[in-house]
Design a protein around this nucleic acid. Sequence first.
DNA 1: AGGGTTAGGAACCGATCGGTACAAAACACA
DNA 2: TGTGTTTTGTACCGATCGGTTCCTAACCCT
Lengths: 195, 195
Amino acid sequence: MARPREFDPDEAMDKAMGLFWDVGYEEASLTELLAAMEITKGSFYKAFQDKQSIYLATLDRYNDKVISGTVGYLTDPAEGSGRARILGLFGKVAEAVAQDGDRLGCFLCNALIDKAAEGGEAEDKLQAMVHRLETAFHRALKDDGQLQESDARETARGILSAYFGLRVLERAGLSREMAADCIRQVEWLLERGSR
Amino acid sequence: MARPREFDPDEAMDKAMGLFWDVGYEEASLTELLAAMEITKGSFYKAFQDKQSIYLATLDRYNDKVISGTVGYLTDPAEGSGRARILGLFGKVAEAVAQDGDRLGCFLCNALIDKAAEGGEAEDKLQAMVHRLETAFHRALKDDGQLQESDARETARGILSAYFGLRVLERAGLSREMAADCIRQVEWLLERGSR
DNA sequence: AGGGTTAGGAACCGATCGGTACAAAACACA
DNA sequence: TGTGTTTTGTACCGATCGGTTCCTAACCCT
């Protein structure tokens, strides 16, 4: 019994996420945000609280969609061995770089650097996502059953840092050769259990 | 035959660099910048052109001071073997994290993520710094003489991405255990030549 | 001591920031 | 076809953005 929305809030959130992902929190002005979301101010402030809130919401959304997807892939036995899954993940990143010249990087990684995170709710959300990724790598390694608990933990963390490192270099526009070299080093780390 | 400056431009630049390093380009408002530099607007615009210019200048300064220092350390035979120097560098990072709870990260790494870089002069400067680091790692590895040219190149790149990854995690406030684990993985990469 | 020259500081600028108020428009229901 | 309810667009808000102007203060040199 009222006028219906003319836009899909989920779609709008995705577009907002895309902008924050690309340029960060501060650099995304409200005007740009509205342009990206293809709605006007009235609709924005009726549907969402404010800029800060929708930023936090996009972090949650990234966690729910992207991170969950990655974690799911890393921990899915149907995708092959733990090592194969980890390399598969890195391969996907390299592919995006090579084919589309993708330079977005990883929203989580970008947001960690973005000062907007510090101290508030955002920081907790980011920490949680980092932890989810770490344990996903850990589980993938454990699934292969060749590493001690402590070695698996260590390796998972090394892989995690290599992952973020690659994502940083992606932002810098690394060549596909460089991506391939980085990944070959990850392979080397993964060979640890099978020596 | 005129009134002398009351501040040291180099010191002021260092303070500006510190702020950009901490919060990035966009997040650092001119007001904050002036407060950090401890000068007023008049002096600022007399001594430097504008905000963009001083940002670029701080990138140069970081290159001249910090990156050069790091490259110097990595390539100095007096600091031990190539491997020892690389581990020494990572050790310094871990130490800063453990002792001071340092969460600044690496200015280069932060700036790579910062969208302020894209497309302009800044991007070239950043690419150049990344390349300097990569070749410094490469030279350190070659100094030990146990790796083929191509293996040294690959390993250098893997180390570089691990380095940036650690710096990202540093921004996230990683524990000293996690830092230690990451570094142990770097050790593992370095053992490649000596197997 | 006085004149020339530059630094310092504050007032001011238009533009843009994130956010609010409110009236017109569009629908559901009667 | 009204009527009530919600969305939408726009005008507007004070605050702050980066940057300029210009007057005064401070110094060097004669």
